[in-house]
């Protein structure tokens, strides 16, 4: 793809990148703390990943290999669009293979393949404030974080249990980082929460519209909020991936007819392909594969 001229490497000017890197350093130094930053207006709409894009633009170098996923897949339209943006303004190599990437920008998923030290995972964040659903005011939530006033979060989970018999939060499930800050993991399914705990890769979070950055440094403790008698649990499926037979990955439901027929496939398209290349085959078999491609 041709690299556009007339723009600085990775679109943002160097002063802006420096401002963002400084905010990121602060974020890494205080894991889980939301650092306000002078978020710029980007040529993509707010809500489409402007925070993640600014973070990626600030840390990417010419030698980086970039992977962009949305809903776990490399070929969803917005992932394609963002990958294309960086290929155009930074001319960097891109990949769909998780182990080959040095930098992975994601929306709503953490890859199934465990990340290693040296990799950076950049999350796109719509609402960075985990307390927002119990307190809409920024002036209040900042105080609550400062005073570690997190009781309301447990009250909210407790109310779920009294009403539904279980915790009724399935994504953007709040976590406690480094025993200090309650943090929004972004709208990843709670299935992915355990992957954040002591992850060897650096995790950076960018919320462009809300003008906040935060981070989880490598090997940091990340606990999902829960109760002793209602421990945190993740989604499970009775099915396996129709294409690769995986029983350990997050599955997307695909409607196959108008009579309630459905099949399940890996949300992480790279993980699924890797397994198929290694010879694994799901119950959907080659027919399922054809349908998917």
């Amino acid at each position: 793809m041709s690299v556009v001229t007339g723009y600085n490497f990775a679109y943002l000017d160097e002063q802006t990148k420096r401002m963002i890197r400084r905010a990121l350093l602060k974020a890494v130094a205080v894991p889980g703390y939301q650092v306000p930053f002078g978020s710029r207006e980007m040529p993509l709409p707010y809500g489409w990943g402007t925070g993640g894009i600014q973070v990626t633009a600030s840390v990417i170098g010419p030698d980086d290999v970039l992977k962009v996923i949305d809903q776990g897949a490399d070929d969803t339209t917005n992932a394609v669009s963002i990958r294309r943006f960086f290929a155009r303004v930074a001319g960097v190599a891109t990949t769909e293979r998780t182990p080959e990437a040095t930098l992975i920008q994601t929306r709503h998923r953490i890859p199934e393949t465990p990340l290693r030290a040296g990799q950076i995972l950049v999350y796109q964040v719509p609402i960075p404030e985990p307390l927002r659903w119990v307190e809409p005011r920024e002036t209040e939530t900042r105080k609550m974080h400062a005073l570690i006033e997190y009781g309301v979060m447990h009250v909210k989970l407790y109310e779920d249990i009294t009403r539904h018999g279980r915790i009724a939060t399935s994504y953007d499930y709040p976590v406690l980082v480094n025993d200090r800050y309650v943090m929004a993991p972004s709208p990843i399914p709670k299935f992915d929460n355990p992957k954040m705990h002591r992850m060897p890769a650096l995790q950076l979070f960018g919320a462009g519209r809300e003008k906040r950055l935060y981070a989880v440094p490598p090997y940091t403790k990340v606990e999902s909020l829960d109760f002793e008698d209602h421990p945190f649990e993740v989604q499970r499926w009775d099915d396996v991936c129709a294409l690769c037979g995986a029983a350990d990955s997050y599955l997307d439901e695909v409607i196959v007819d108008d009579r309630g027929g459905r099949m399940y496939v890996c949300s992480d398209s790279d993980y699924c392909r890797e397994r198929r290349e290694a010879g694994h085959l799901g119950p959907g078999g080659p027919a399922g594969l054809e349908a998917a491609e």
Binding site: Y46, G47, N78, S170, Y171, P187, Q235, E253
Partner: peptide
């Protein structure tokens, strides 16, 4: 510009989150 982006971003795929909600509702 902020409002338009955020209101309209919900037309981006959310099927991972929706899958979580489907799973939850079925379980309940």
């Amino acid at each position: 510009v902020e409002a338009s982006g955020f209101v309209q971003h919900i037309k981006l795929p959310h099927y991972v989150d929706f899958q979580g909600e489907l799973d939850l509702i079925r379980r309940l």
